[in-house]
Amino acid sequence: MNTNTDLVIDAHDVHHTYRQDGTDSPVLHGVDLTIRRGEFVLLMGPSGCGKTTLLHILGMMMRPTSGSVRVEGVDVGSMSEAERTRFRRERVGFVFQRFNLLPILTARGNVELPLRLRGDTMDGQAARVLRQIGLLEKADKKPRSLSIGEQQRIALARAVVTEPHLLLADEPTGNLDSATAGAVLDLLANLHQSCGLTTLMITHNEHIATRADRVLTMRDGRIEL
């Protein structure tokens, strides 16, 4: 048991191979990664090098083929699917390149969704977060009537509304123009600063590098030292 609770992520020699229609495609070839509580870490690297795969493993969406991954001291390999689901619900926030808002729910409905999944009322929490991102007045609009920048801010609000311990963002500005991207990144940086939220963000945006604690580069399924 890892007693160093200061390490939110502690991954060692992580390998992953996708198996599809009988063919193996190895993607991760021994990733080593540690992230301390409160760190803001960027992960960069060419497309297809396995960044998203690593993020899904760290977010407990899937298990690595081999290697050890501990998130907040808990070994992913030893957890059942139900335990991983619960872990995600309680401690992880995801932001995706494609926002992944539910089109049928309003902005508020989307932000409240993780709270409802937790059976948590957290009264006024959704409104608080919506105000924080400056979109309270658009809370009752459906995603399609919001601009894409606004949609991504809503997605960000949804990721942090439950006050997770770990925020995983996968190219959150990949679909945005640079001005809008700037606003979303500012928001992310502010969130990180104000609540000390441990954040791992995949990005191609060089400008944000100055605001990060560390910048990691991934190549061919490994993190470069």
Partner: peptide, 16 residues
């Protein structure tokens, strides 16, 4: 299908 993926990423159980 995609919506269920999203719900899963947010921690929705199969029962949910």
């Amino acid at each position: 299908t995609r919506e269920f993926g999203i719900l899963r990423s947010l921690g929705a159980t199969g029962g949910y």
